[in-house]
């Protein structure tokens, strides 16, 4: 990306919608792709696949534990199964199965969590997944991805399919700003620098990438040069990008629609501690469950917006001196 590129950030598809559309394309390209779903296909957007490939789509009923282990068996016998549900259910009700029947034998299962974070909105905390990345990253051998927009989702779902091994892909319910131009290349494990900057680095995943871009624009007007990095792969981390950010900007803000405990922030902090200690600040959900509300209202109330990212950057800069 060009330095100081202007981002329009027009509203685009929800990442779950991009997942559903890409899944249909992949189904046409590869007959080994199969899908299991737990009575949420119209929400996870696997519905399109189920209509075009009914023989490769297996309804599990409302039974996520079984769904994950069915996917394990399909993978053991050479299929490329996608298991989809709300992240909150997939990662918690299916966790033990992810541990013993997917991670431990290292089977080639692709898990797609939708309705992640608090931006699911009115349904409230029982449906909101704010700990899914912590759980997914705790599984040895897992690759964990949280794309920022539709273009990123489509490319990263394809990349996840092309690789062998378990992958968790985190998507959201609501339409999100378009960050990437069509055709943008993505590589699993390689962060993307969206804006160059030298005073502070803003790292984020998911919908906080767009908020970080907006924060960088605000900071630029104040004469602060903020680098913006999309950390779309939470595991394995792009340690090189982290090392550069720490060494070159000396301050890092990590923003995420997830509990600050166990999310991208603490993972980056560990890498920073190992590679090049620097000042850090964290924007995320702090030790609480959210509530019902509009997605926008919730993101405002729980501080997952550009002004909070910018404020964290100013705090980091103040501490850096």
């Amino acid at each position: 990306m060009a330095a100081k590129a202007k981002f329009e950030l027009k509203l685009g598809p929800a990442t779950r919608e991009a997942f559903g559309a890409t899944l249909v394309e992949l189904g046409r390209e590869n007959k080994d792709i199969v899908v299991v779903d737990a009575d949420l296909s119209k929400s996870t957007m696997t519905y399109g696949f189920s209509k075009e490939f009914p023989e490769r789509f297996f309804t599990c009923g409302i039974a996520e534990a079984n769904m994950v282990a069915i996917a394990s068996g399909l993978a053991a016998a050479g299929k490329i199964p996608f298991a989809a549900s709300f992240s909150a259910f997939l990662m918690t009700k299916g966790f033990e199965q992810l541990r013993v029947t997917v991670a431990y034998p290292n089977f080639n299962v692709k898990l797609v969590g939708t309705h992640s974070g608090i931006s699911i909105g009115e349904d409230g905390p029982s449906q909101m997944s704010v700990e899914d990345l912590a759980l997914a990253c705790s599984l040895p051998g897992f690759t964990v991805i949280a794309p920022a927009d539709g273009v990123a989702t489509s490319a990263l779902v394809r990349a996840a399919t092309a690789m062998v091994g378990p992958v968790f892909i985190r998507t959201g319910r609501v339409k999100v700003p378009v960050v990437y131009a069509a055709g943008q290349q993505f590589e699993v494990g390689k962060a993307i620098e969206l804006i160059e900057g030298s005073d502070v680095t803003l790292m984020a995943h998911g919908l906080m990438v767009a908020e970080s871009i907006r924060a960088a624009e605000t900071l630029e007007a104040e004469g602060i040069s903020a680098r913006v990095v999309d950390m779309h792969t939470i595991k394995p981390l792009d340690r090189e990008a982290i090392h550069r950010a720490a060494a070159e900007t000396g301050a890092i803000v990590v923003s995420e629609e997830h509990l600050v405990d166990g999310g991208l922030g603490v993972r980056v902090a560990q890498a920073v501690a190992e590679l090049h200690p620097c000042v850090m600040e964290f924007v995320g959900i702090r030790n609480t469950y959210a509530e019902s509300g509009t997605p926008d209202g919730l993101l405002d109330k729980y501080g997952l917006r550009a002004p909070e990212v910018a404020a964290a950057a100013r705090r980091a800069l103040a501490r850096k001196k």
């Binding site: 069915i70 068996g73 993978a75 013993v100």
Partner: peptide, 21 residues
Amino acid sequence: EASTGSLGQGLSVAIGMGLAA
């Protein structure tokens, strides 16, 4: 064919294999 030990999971895995066959 599978790593086991945590009870209750093998039947699901077996059925997944059956679907694949």
